[in-house]
Design a protein around this nucleic acid. Sequence first.
DNA 1: CAGGATCCGCCAAGATACTG
DNA 2: CAGTATCTTGGCGGATCCTG
Lengths: 120, 120
Amino acid sequence: MTRTHEKVRYSPKSMPHQYTRETAAEGVEAALKLLEGRWKLVILFHLFGGRVLRFSDLERAVSGVSQKMLIQQLRQLENDGIVRRIVHHQVPPKVEYCLTDWGQALCPALDALLTWASQR
Amino acid sequence: MTRTHEKVRYSPKSMPHQYTRETAAEGVEAALKLLEGRWKLVILFHLFGGRVLRFSDLERAVSGVSQKMLIQQLRQLENDGIVRRIVHHQVPPKVEYCLTDWGQALCPALDALLTWASQR
DNA sequence: CAGGATCCGCCAAGATACTG
DNA sequence: CAGTATCTTGGCGGATCCTG
């Protein structure tokens, strides 16, 4: 990657559009912070496509996760507006989880990441 | 960037193409694992666009980072094939860092994430 | 200049037990 | 069934000092 000694030029594709280097870094960092966490992505993938799962379903689907971690990650995803929590007031309790519209909108981004990962 | 009020449809497009739910989760998880780390994204953003920076440049650019953390993150990025390390054998030492092609290929993915983040 | 080597505090995460 | 409540621990990240 030889460099011209002139000013560094950013072809449109080399930097996300209309963001400065700094705000973009902050933006992506903030976005990724929402997705950070050992189990969040696994959870999300199980909820993609409009799936609605109960707590116990997720507990089984996300193998290896502890109750504490599962609920913690779900709470964070919920507070961040990515996951919706639906409580059915009945005995025994029934709580379902699904993605919000914004959560579903993550798909293209994850797809891009997947594409990148497979380019290796 | 505000979306029109069109209804969000979850068709086949809501799942990344030709991946099973599980392999996709693994793939993205693996990909994100490479980007995990307090400083990696900031580093990457400073290297995007074909920029070539010295260690000391990065030290200044990534404000707040300690030497230990900077070198640690750089090493990981290097081992993961995202960043290239160029050593100039001279005194005083001079080491430069830039992105590999694969590293540059991350841009669309981060762009998608940015788009998602701004849709909120 | 570009790291390596150490020591340490802190907290995310695991295990376990209990409950509305 | 769907969570809380504690206790414990590994390792991440910071600070500091040292070196080819």
